[in-house]
Amino acid sequence: MRYLPVHVVILAKDEERCIGRCLDSVIGRGFSSIVVLDTGSVDSTCGLAASYEAHGVQLVRIPWMESFAAARNRALELFDSVWVFFVDADEWLPVGEVEKLFGGLSALANQPREDLAIAPVIYDVDRDSWVNEVPRVFFASGCIEYRGEVHEYPVVSADGDSPVRLHKLNFTLNHDGYGREVAVRKRKTQRNLALLSAARERDPENPRWLYFSIRDGLPLHSPEFLLQACNKLVEMADHKSSGGDRTNAGEYLRRALPLASQNLGFHGWWSEVERNCVVLDELDGECSPDAQYLRRISDLWLGGLPDSSLSELIRIRKDDRIVAKSTLCPQGRHLDAVIAAGIEARYGGDEADRYRDMCAPWDDMFFVSSRIRMPQAELA
């Protein structure tokens, strides 16, 4: 089969753990070139990448500019009028997926390409979750650039930073860079929060940076910071945001409120949690599954889950349409966890374990492996 010209770019910094795995997954797969763009590794990453030179891998070193967008834009400057496929060093392309990529690009051959961004399915093997709205494949023609110090996103810079035209393509990248051990060793939380602080200072009216600041530093933030951030997102949701981000302020608010409410509830700020739940119901236009989750956690924390509330939660869990609206877990794992906690409080641990055995595990500020973090005596 003759493939379209597609060039792979792998961003890397201190990735000796996984750079070989990443390269092994893309060499010999029909790509026109493979470039490792190193932004200042001090471990053996560069040596490992250089050892693949015989397989056509090119190592390019650039200084770290305190911005992932700047690094990706530098990579795009290396190419002209070709498809560029960004792969992170902690990702790898499973066998059989490259054919889906090339086949999908061939099917798009007659579409305008200058503003087109292709999003694969990125599967997080540690969290057993996936996203399919993060663009990774572009036609490098000078029209698309990245914005943002971290959690960067592409825009059509040739059109005044307008949103890219997103096409979701059914091919998969595996990812494991945010497992606890790796994240702690590479200090990813501290790195991201510092970069997000710079992004908020540079672009204070962009809701993206507030949302990711909440998400990435959730256990570390004070309730006061989270209330201020959520109030700012509420204000932003009242007007159309700009900057070329495909996600609007209202959606960032939907995603932020359930996260911030975990921290608030953990610190006992349950009245603020309930106010957030009201907003979530309003945003969904009906019963929000995440609001229901938070309210039932409040019941457990403050004295016990009434039979009527447990029954209502089970009813919601059975409604796939409602569950799919969740921004915490569209698969409903968080609802399963709180249902199991309610069963344990009422019927005992054996019954709860039977339910847990049928469900995928859930972890957040309230649960670890679907077991509530509170002392069991508080659930009586």
Results as ranks from 00 to 15, higher is better:
E91Y: 02
E91L: 04
E91M: 10
L93K: 01
L93N: 03
P94H: 07
P94M: 10
P94G: 09
V95F: 09
G96W: 04
G96S: 06
G96H: 06
E97H: 03
E97I: 11
V98G: 10
K100I: 07
L101W: 04
G103Q: 00
G103A: 02
G104N: 03
G104W: 05
L105I: 00
S106I: 08
A107L: 13
L108N: 03
A109V: 12
N110R: 08
Q111D: 12
Q111A: 13
P112C: 00
P112N: 03
R113K: 15
R113D: 01
A117Q: 05
I118G: 00
I118F: 02
I118M: 05
I118Y: 02
P120G: 06
P120L: 08
P120H: 08
V121G: 05
I122E: 15
I122M: 14
Y123P: 07
Y123Q: 11
D124R: 03
D124L: 04
D124S: 02
D124H: 06
D124I: 07
R127L: 15
R127Y: 12
S129Y: 14
V131I: 13
V131Q: 11
N132K: 14
N132I: 07
E133R: 14
V134T: 15
V134A: 09
P135A: 09
P135I: 07
R136C: 09
V137T: 12
V137D: 00
V137P: 07
F138C: 02
F138N: 00
F139W: 15
F139C: 01
A140E: 02
S141E: 08
S141W: 01
G142Q: 00
G142E: 04
G142L: 07
G142R: 06
